[in-house]
């Protein structure tokens, strides 16, 4: 209980840092100096001190959405192992976590429609299109890990893989990991699916949906999105490659766990920054190719678990 509370607070506190880090790394690859890694904190702090403007066409959905999004990511992070595998796994398993993200997306896309501008509608429509393939991909790839580790509880999965060592490693794991990585990029509005640093209507998905939010509301939306990105990275680190995570709540274990997760997150941030600097954003109607590839990978992962 306490550990999962602490871990949730840590995830919330660290999420802007990793967003800043990815931006800094991208700037480095692009030969720019870039803003400080702490910049997202200053942005959030500033936004929290500002009034919000809400469209007069919008209903209560628009006002409720920022709070719902934040609630969804916090509730999800209760069930995700971060430094240690001790979390609130008995409350909900991976399906609950995926569907909590689904709830966040549902509200965000509704808020996109709510203001009645074409941009918001466009963003919502594209977001739901992308998620139509990405959500099942995520489910299937995590199901593969559930089958390998014999539990659908995220902490349990992490624990069983971390303690059993390499005996459980199967080809399915790598297929699922590849599918999950592509889905992470797609779900968190990263290149090549979306571009997080543009406001050009032709390219944007996520930014188009949150266009009408401002002030405190925008701060919550941004923060919840940053947290969602970090949660995806943490799930990728602790479910697919959990080695090093603390399993017994000893001082030594916790220390190793902290070092391990930070190293893994650094590597993933680097990978995202590399992908974003070396690839162009894809045209919207080219996306289905990439996404169906990742879906097929995850389906193959599940099937290969049964065959091999």
């Amino acid at each position: 209980m306490l550990t999962s509370l602490v871990q949730t607070l840590l995830i919330l506190a660290l999420s802007p840092l990793f967003t800043g880090l990815i931006r800094k790394l991208k700037a480095y690859f692009q030969g720019r100096q870039g803003a400080s890694v702490l910049q997202p904190y200053w942005d959030l702090a500033k936004l929290f001190h500002k009034d919000s403007v809400v469209s007069q066409d919008a209903s209560w959905i628009m006002t409720a959405t920022p709070y719902v999004c934040m609630t969804a990511v916090i509730a999800a992070s209760f069930m995700v192992p971060f430094i240690t595998t001790s979390s609130l796994g008995f409350v909900g398993d991976l399906i609950v976590v995926v569907y909590l993200f689904g709830m966040m997306r549902f509200f965000m896309a509704l808020a996109g429609l709510d203001a009645g501008s074409s941009f918001g509608g466009m963003g919502s429509s594209r977001e739901m299109t992308v998620s139509a393939i990405v959500e099942p991909t995520i489910l299937l790839s995590v199901f593969t890990m559930a089958l390998i580790s014999g539990t659908t509880d995220l902490s349990g999965m992490s624990q069983s893989l971390a303690t059993t060592g390499f005996d459980l490693v199967r080809p399915a794991l790598f297929l699922a990991l590849a599918a999950f990585f592509i889905s992470t990029l797609a779900e968190n509005a990263r290149v090549p699916v979306d571009n997080p640093s543009t406001h050009l209507e032709l390219t944007m998905i996520h930014e188009a949906m949150v266009l009408e939010h401002s002030g405190k509301h925008l701060a919550l939306m941004e923060w919840s999105s940053m947290t969602k990105l970090l949660l995806y990275l943490v799930i990728m680190a602790n479910i697919f490659l959990p080695w090093g995570i603390d399993t017994d709540l000893t001082v030594l274990g916790l220390a190793t766990g902290t070092v391990a997760i930070i190293l893994k997150l650094l590597v993933f941030s680097l990978a995202i920054a590399l992908v974003e600097s070396s690839m162009a954003k894809m045209r919207l109607f080219r996306l289905p190719n990439l996404l169906t590839v990742s879906f097929s990978l995850s389906l193959l992962a599940v099937i290969s678990y049964y065959i091999l």
Partner: peptide
């Protein structure tokens, strides 16, 4: 519980801010 907490804490940090009704950006 989390929803209630988010609502309260987000009002505490940065102070109570107005929610202004205005046109959608057109």
């Amino acid at each position: 519980a989390v929803m209630a907490m988010v609502m309260v804490l987000s009002q505490v940090y940065g102070g109570r801010r107005k929610v202004v009704k205005a046109d959608t950006w057109d």
